[in-house]
Design a binder for these strands. Sequence first.
RNA 1: UGCCCCGUGGUGUAACGGUAGCACAACAGAUUUUGAUUCUGUUUGACAAGGUUCGAAUCCUUGCGGGGUAACCA
Length: 564
Amino acid sequence: MTEETKEPASERLDFIRQIIKDDLESGKHKTTVTRFPPEPNGYLHIGHAKAICLSFGIAQENAATGGRCHLRFDDTNPAKESDEYVRSIQEDVRWLGFDWGDHLYFASNYFERFYECAMHLIETGKAYVDFQSQEQMRSTRGTLTEPGEASPYRDTTSDENKALFEKMRAGEMKDGEAVLRAKIDMASQNLNMRDPVIFRIMHHTHHNTGDTWCIYPMYDFAHPLEDAFEEVTHSLCTLEFEDHRPLYDWVVQNCPVPAVPRQIEFAKLNLTYTLLSKRNLLRLVSEELVHGWDDPRMPTISGLRRRGVPPEAIRHLCHEVGLTKFKSTNDVTLLENAARDLLNKTSPRYMAVLDPIKVTITNWDETRVDELEAVLNPNDPDAGSRKIPMSRNLVIEHEDFLDDENPPKKFFRLAPGTEVRLRYSYVLKCEEVVRDEAGNPIELLCTVDHETLGKNPEGRKVKGVIHWVSADHAVKAPVRLYDRLFVDENPSAGEGDFVDHLNADSLKVIHALLEPELAKAAVSEARVQFERVGYFVADRLDSTPDHPVYNRTVSLRDSWGGGK
RNA sequence: UGCCCCGUGGUGUAACGGUAGCACAACAGAUUUUGAUUCUGUUUGACAAGGUUCGAAUCCUUGCGGGGUAACCA
């Protein structure tokens, strides 16, 4: 799908791609098989996008040798998982631009095989049924500096263990009554190796297998087996699993599996002003601090989508941030910039006035309406143009008018007595300010220089350009102005609750006046630029050309300090 | 406190023992019917101390700093 451009051969590889390259060159593997293994217990967010771009990206890069990436749902804990999440995850991965072909898997489809592997461990004396309570197990696990003590059930014979494990499966025991533990080393300096639990009893309906099982495998047992069953070659995960790798390898070595996958860890994505933990995102949704998982303020894939961020921009960001084992925090402006960059190249431009003030052109005939020609995208000649109606009655942006007879030198917009260019139209001069009783300007009486359409005025320079809409033709539409959800760079730092760091102004709904063509363009997910304001997207659920609703994706860069 | 991982400008990320480069940010200028875009330029960096070496960001040692780790979560 990506057309391979002639890279200057020295395209540098990140440490994971280097390992893969070495494995291919040494003949250890003929191709590479990766996987993206989400638990269906929440929506995907931009942090997952990094993992998706990595694992699916590697598969694409190795397509010539049959490289592939599996989408596998790691659904081993029925208490937290649901089909809603299974559905949304698939939609999000596809939207991001990736394809798993026939390789869609569920851990729950391996339940019988997990059971067989557990039986194998029991038969080889490497697993036992433990009846200690959770508290007892915790207290006998030892501490960071002291070894643990053996369970009194550690030396049960393998025949007895087999019978007990069968009883567990048969539903003859209650939740928590017993667990199956791997028999490894209670004195290991790696606490994960101190006889970890590998199966627990949970009488809970599973979204996929219903009530056929009442015992479920733990991640540390299931995950390496899933990878091995699918003959994954490189199992890429985040740093917090580093300490689990010895256990991962132990499981692979001690169970009958067809392949030996290798786990490699990398640092997950962090962004300033952004929360990226499923638990906290779930809280935002369930406490209704936002309007659902796809609220455009959410860092979820579906939220970013609704916000108008193109998938290409997300992929670009994931490439930009690099891949290391260093736990870093990237600036959100990187994401905003990735969106701006792409949108600048692709978005048609229109005019909309968000906060209008009335302008009457006193030297323009009451009945005269001109159709002005305006290009849709100055960066894309093929985009064509649109027509904009111009009449005697206009609106301009309130902040483009400065109520001061002597505006500062660097102010290029409209003020009493000054001139400004109406974009795609004439040069406008403010002749008089009409005020309400409190003295606030409510209308500007202006004139245009009829000689200035498409050309500069003679003998003077007009530096400023402002956007405008014909009041007689404008379409009123709700526009949602989104801003960062949090005011703190690191919302989860410190003692307090992250909720205390929410930005009270993260959403402002206003009613803007759109040029007619902008209303017509408001089909679901159409991405446009409001000239001089920002990039917007027609809301994918709420917008139609008859009832336009626009969401602000990101504002334009504004290097003028004197603005708002 | 044990074990594991990580330390390169403001933020990230390269250089696989040989001139510390790139992106973003910041700043300055040019162009501009978007104060956008585009273009040009500038500023800013090796956690510390030892060692190996003709030569160390890179290899070794120690220290310092940050993170992870003691669910029947993933």
